[in-house]
Amino acid sequence: MSLIEITEVRKSFGANEVLKGINLDVEPGEVIAIIGKSGSGKSTLLRCINGLENIDSGSISVAGAQLQPDEIHLKALRLKVGMIFQQFNLFPHLTAGGNVMLSQMVVKKTAKPEAEAMAHKMLERVGLAHKFDAYPDELSGGQQQRVAIARALAMQPIALLCDEITSALDPELVSEVLAVVRELAAEGMTLLMVTHEMKFARDVCSRVVFMHQGRAHEIGPPDAVFSNPKTPELKQFLGML
């Protein structure tokens, strides 16, 4: 059984069908890049996987936890998949450490000393142990995004969803975030990332999904997808036509 099973998922916003029957199975430890034009449904797909959007039909399960719209099922699912956002979404009223500690204490009811130890460990993992007491507005974009990664990791998810996590960063800050992601991939974390970093996708990912008009138009290992695209849409997207 695959770790993440996405079966015939459909989703519409009003009359606009954004996902037209997506099928994708992800094995443990796989790193998947989802690429495609804006409006192709790639972010929506990612947001459906942890229930930020409701799906109209089809099914999604993560390590046996089914996506259901009620709060209990959603919580069980969200404990298994962490999510990182384009806009970081750190809690501005808490320090970096506080951001990483909050959900452990509130959701998992971890005792404060343990949550704090975990926060130190996770911040160290993203290279920010020294920023434990800094507030988000005292950190650069790259640092904020790394805190967001630490915050997601502290919940010990079995998979991470990354929604264009470098798109809001200044170019010189992109590499520090990608370095953290690369390390996570090397450690065997299952990753699904919507990205525009084609070189990164090529280097790190095990599979690439090209989305086009609400469908998974082409799926394959990065070499095949980037060097030998089969469909004209993908060729055009990659600038080969």
Binding site: N50, G51, L52, E71, L74, K75, R78, L79, V81, G82, M83, F85, Q87, N89, L90, F91, P92, H93, L102, S103, V106, V107, K108, A148, R151, A152, M155
Partner: peptide, 29 residues
Amino acid sequence: ARGQWEASSSLGMGYVQQMRYVILPQALR
């Protein structure tokens, strides 16, 4: 910002927890 709701949701918080620990402390200010 909506992102605050989404981030706290994705961390597994329920409505009351989101209100109490994330939204209201910021709204109060």
